[in-house]
Design a protein around this nucleic acid. Sequence first.
DNA 1: CAGTGGTCTAGACCACTTC
DNA 2: AAGTGGTCTAGACCACTGC
Lengths: 245, 245
Amino acid sequence: MSLTSEPIASFSPLYEQIKAMILASLQASEWLPGDAIPSEMELAARYAVSQGTVRKAIDELATQNLLVRRQGKGTFVATHQEEDFQYRFLRLEPDSGEKLHLKNQFLACENAQSDAYTAKLLKLKAGDPIIRIDRVQSYAGRPIVFEEIWLPEGRFKGLTLEALNSWPGPMYAFYECQYATHMVRAEEKIKAVLANPELANYLQVQEGSALLSVERVAFTYGNKPVEIRHARYDTSDQHYDNKLH
Amino acid sequence: MSLTSEPIASFSPLYEQIKAMILASLQASEWLPGDAIPSEMELAARYAVSQGTVRKAIDELATQNLLVRRQGKGTFVATHQEEDFQYRFLRLEPDSGEKLHLKNQFLACENAQSDAYTAKLLKLKAGDPIIRIDRVQSYAGRPIVFEEIWLPEGRFKGLTLEALNSWPGPMYAFYECQYATHMVRAEEKIKAVLANPELANYLQVQEGSALLSVERVAFTYGNKPVEIRHARYDTSDQHYDNKLH
DNA sequence: CAGTGGTCTAGACCACTTC
DNA sequence: AAGTGGTCTAGACCACTGC
């Protein structure tokens, strides 16, 4: 066969290549969370394909919650700053069925070095600088969630306890606004554990109570892990809600 | 030769109406789990629309896991009897990352009357006949899961402990084969609880150990709830795995 | 080879938003 | 009215399966 120059990803459908190119633009911050991306016709022209092919690419990115389509307006980069996506990753829900509105209190924000565990999950080297945050979240005046959070220091330089405590909204909106980091997806591992004295104190429960342990790794564009979260939930009056398909 | 093509919902896009009609055929058992449904061209002719419109309808049903497309072969009704869908609703996973293979032991299968709780979730009247099943599942020789299951007696007539214990595969495959009931989706509410003497005995753990409590309601076609499951997992060496998007 | 789903195109028209 | 996404069509061709 000939040695003609070939596209880099050659044996995938066109719309997959378009998807990859849109994804690259997102990753490169060419379009920021909340922004409108170019219209389907413009993108079709840019990539020299038909509108239908761009449509299919955008459709798939929209079902993955990376883009949001709004008829008559345009297609937008998904953001945790908007109502519908505000608490996209929060599965905790009061047993009563009411809406959960958590009040934040950050307890600590300190520099540290990653151990083997955090290094592995964040794809760092053990000893690399990281930031460690503690917080408690309350509902109806009662502490419900205790969380330890680890962030790679490189991406989140200069993060302070004051900045966190004066931020009004959800944390993932904070990351977007202050550190240009949008969370795309997350993986959670859930266990039941007993409250040790420290946890019992934070969550105001008896030592030896049952708590839900939720270990999350959150990823930004390009499957890059950028946050670890180890939460403990008091599930006496709320539960973790999950839908299976 | 063909059935009526009366739209079921009138002021929605054509492909939504096609979806509804395919769904109706599934619900009516016109095509059974594992069967091939008619080809896109046949369906396009039956419903008097273009192939593209049928495609869009099937695409959405396929992403909801109701249908499975196989290039070159056809489109099939999803079934829990196949490898890929065998353990679709099982989120438990060994910490080691190995594959979980559970061994079943059914302990009880008795007729009972629904209480307020089961009646509400299964949309029955309190006092309606139900079947109550207990089972323990083991992994690597150790009991890991204790489950109480409630089924509406009307749909699962004649279910016996012997039938359950002699069934080799997963329970949702059993429901399909014996009771023509395919589970489409489920909702779970997860809490951390303490082992009482009964649970401690079933799961061979200390009384007061932390266990994961998972309450599931499973639905068949048409959003009809047909099973309640209350599981307790021993999460010492395994965890509930969840992906967030 | 025929039959299936998968991709891609081009064009018409609809529904919604904004000016 | 102009611009956006949303629906629908018709037809060409590709990729995969099984006879």
